[in-house]
Design a protein around this nucleic acid. Structure first.
Lengths: 155, 155
DNA sequence: TAGTCAAAAGTCAAAGATGGTCAGAGGGTG
DNA sequence: CACCCTCTGACCATCTTTGACTTTTGACTA
């Protein structure tokens, strides 16, 4: 194996496979020591190899008792819907209430959101909830919708 | 368990659960001794884990016969829960990710949000989703949480 | 009754323990 | 040679632990 990143990647996947659990918890420092590299190398491996698109979810906590938790997730089968919706977001610099509603309804029709979830999200993303930030509203909507889709992309 | 604070938190919650009563009384010194830590560690645990928005009420008395009483708040009407959470919003000019998480989890525990809805909302309100608007983040969170509670209040 | 003292608990800031970010250097491959 | 990964380290953010100092309370005493 040519580089240390690949080695660490294999190691982590091995550990993940061997532990029957759906998640493993590591200490960044420990892994770095084991492979004699700087701690931020671990972040590099995680950022490049354990992404959502590849089916992994990573959480972490800093400070005393800190950890990095890597979880295997199953990707949602309707990636294409999400991709097409994200394209739409790209094409519309200004995300009106109307457009948001359309997107949410589409997600409902595809079975990715319940009716209640649509109502809830629509409310949060409405002009009224977001307040006077007339200009920023659109930006925030885009970002929150992107966060939503990222979340919906796995089970 | 990774750090002593988590251990103490679990212990106190266990005691709270086992005693059928709605409140427990502890002696700070005793707990500190049992877990071999400094007494102020107990304050740290209480301040970070037994907060109002998480649904706990803490009273104490100093001096001879001093004690710390931890009470689980029991509200029977959803309306009461919402009002108390809105009070908390009032009291916190800056709505951190942590506080938002606590509030959402509380709403789950009170049966007003599903686990999935909590996850969904948490992602939308996260630092990551809201982006670099460091200052505005807090304002947006407040407004969106208020919108959420308003919606929940007339289910 | 007022003062004193010891026994709690509270506060706060510094130190410790982790993990995160980012920009630039290093290296391999077409 | 150019480009794309990798690797590194300085600096940052967050959470926990510790201890010195403060405040409160009740019992005891003058």
């Amino acid at each position: 194996m040519r580089n240390i990143s690949d080695v660490i990647e294999q190691y982590l996947k091995q550990v993940l496979k061997e532990s029957q659990a759906e998640a493993i918890e590591i200490k960044r420092q420990d892994i770095a020591k084991r492979f004699e590299c700087v701690p931020s190398q671990i972040n590099y491996v995680i950022n490049t190899r354990f992404t959502v698109e590849k089916g992994y979810l990573v959480e972490s906590k800093r400070g005393g008792g800190g950890y990095i938790r890597i979880r295997r997730v199953i990707l949602h089968e309707k990636q294409d819907v999400l991709v097409s919706l994200m394209d739409i977001l790209q094409d519309h610099p200004r995300l009106s209430e109307q457009l948001v509603e359309n997107i949410l309804i589409r997600l409902f029709e595809e079975g990715m959101l319940s009716e209640r979830e649509v109502r809830l999200l629509y409310h949060l993303l409405s002009d009224e909830a977001l307040g006077l930030h007339a200009d920023d509203r659109h930006l925030i909507r885009r970002q929150q919708l992107l966060a939503l889709m990222k979340l919906l992309s796995y089970h």
